[in-house]
Design a protein around this nucleic acid. Sequence first.
DNA 1: ATGTCGTCCGCGGGACGA
Length: 260
Amino acid sequence: MRFATWNVNSVKARLPRLREWLAATRPDVLCVQETKVAEFPDISDLGYRTAHFGQGRWNGVAVLSRIGLEDVRQGFPGEPGFPEQEARYVSALCGGIRFISVYVPNGRTPDDPHYTYKLAWLAALRASLKDDLAAGPLVVAGDFNVAPTDDDVWDPAVFVGSTHVTPPEREALAAIQDLGLRDIVGRPLKGDRPFTYWDYRAGMFHMNKGMRIDLVLASPDIAGEVTDAVIDREARKGKGPSDHAPIVVDIERPAGDGIR
DNA sequence: ATGTCGTCCGCGGGACGA
């Protein structure tokens, strides 16, 4: 079985590349972030069903699956809003695994109300995941907007005083992992840094000045079945890429336990 | 790092978010 996560930065702008990538990579399940549309485009011709929580101009998350899509949940109990709920969480059961696609609030700057919102959102997500973990195998994947350690940013000195690297953000993320979720780090296909995001500006991708802010966290049973995990930097190249690369994970479990 | 790209409004390019 193969699954993946990808912040596409607008599914409308990315649709040709998303379709090509799905056809070439054929994940059984894909967690998508930043769809930026109200309705997800029809990709049923590629064999995928879609669970989408869209908001329109901002945010938007989806789970795409070709191995079944049951018990869809848009948002989670106790989820904070700003002030209203935003489209940052959607989950579904696919082949007996709960796949959760998350787009964690950016936080903007540490003195911004959005930063407080980010910390509250992560704490509430932790409480929700604790219940989900008790129910069975799960994967929570997406754009966490937190670099777990200084090794996960191209130059820690540049990020002093910025969001994504502050101790409270890292502690909130660590508290989620401490539930027993394992961080499945993708292999970089070039260089030795597992970055998943490079700013569009200033040739950052070309210079490999990136960040690892997209994460795949898996329950122990799933983590123990991982045979490979790769950051598909090819998807960050060329004309009209997202600023994030997909993380593609292979596990030895047969796709969908026959549920297709 | 603030060098780009996406959205919206609304018809040209500015405002905003990331």
